[in-house]
Design a protein around this nucleic acid. Sequence first.
DNA 1: GAAAAAACATGATATTAATCATATTTAAGA
DNA 2: TCTTAAATATGATTAATATCATGTTTTTTC
Lengths: 143, 143
Amino acid sequence: MLSNSSKYALKAVLYLTLHSDEKNKMMVKDISEKINVPKAYIAKLLQQLAKRKIISSAKGPKGGFYIDKANRNQPIIAIIEVIDGKRRIESCMLGLEDCNLHRPCPLHSLISPSRTKMIQLLESKTINDLAKDLELNKSFLPD
Amino acid sequence: MLSNSSKYALKAVLYLTLHSDEKNKMMVKDISEKINVPKAYIAKLLQQLAKRKIISSAKGPKGGFYIDKANRNQPIIAIIEVIDGKRRIESCMLGLEDCNLHRPCPLHSLISPSRTKMIQLLESKTINDLAKDLELNKSFLPD
DNA sequence: GAAAAAACATGATATTAATCATATTTAAGA
DNA sequence: TCTTAAATATGATTAATATCATGTTTTTTC
């Protein structure tokens, strides 16, 4: 469902949400170590997210990545879309090009409701929502 | 969610269900053409399914693949498990090793219900169920 | 304004998944 | 029993992901 890259990106963004703000930027090196994802790999993903304005970045000394208040209200799915693209998450279960309500594939009617539900949740839950859960120990993010 | 291979396997099995029986075996070549999947590729998948007794096969002239009455009552998920393995379909959304009810990842509580539902459906719906839908034009399986 | 510290851009390598090819085995039918 | 038609087993190639490396640009600080 999600690529490895999306998973890493999500972890990184949640980590930033908990540990960074405009005044406390975080370097790739630290993020990488804390979320246990290779430095050069997560760097690339963070750069993509910054370019698409999901997170922010600053070059030079004292620079780094951070996520501001406004961006924390973005839905989870925004991250996934940047990394994996809309296509991947919405594509038919059997990979059929024209599978839809009027011409459903054999799995469509079976799977569609739960799948739609899943996507709706990713659209409605914000980055902040998930970060709150982590803060309250309602969820965990091990290395 | 499903690998390409699983998708192809599913298409092939459904095709066999509609067009084969013990007396009318189908050759790889025909299956391949009808479901529009490369011959050598679908051959390998069919062989895996046959070895694991999801479908049946016979060598030699008049040989081919078919699926008998008993096997048609197998759940859809049986196909997926043979091709992708149990792991893939059940693994944590964030790819975390020990993500579970007592130590959920940030996506777990959000996604788990719809995900579980989806798996239950794949466990309860049989190959035959899906084939029936196709026969009744309730669903479609284009090339 | 020079040095250093950070992200940025780009491309190379490695690993995994998808695809293709072919020699071997089995069974049918003449 | 020989020929032929099929699956089977195995391995090679190609394409897509994931991972790594490095030179370039920007910004801070002295």
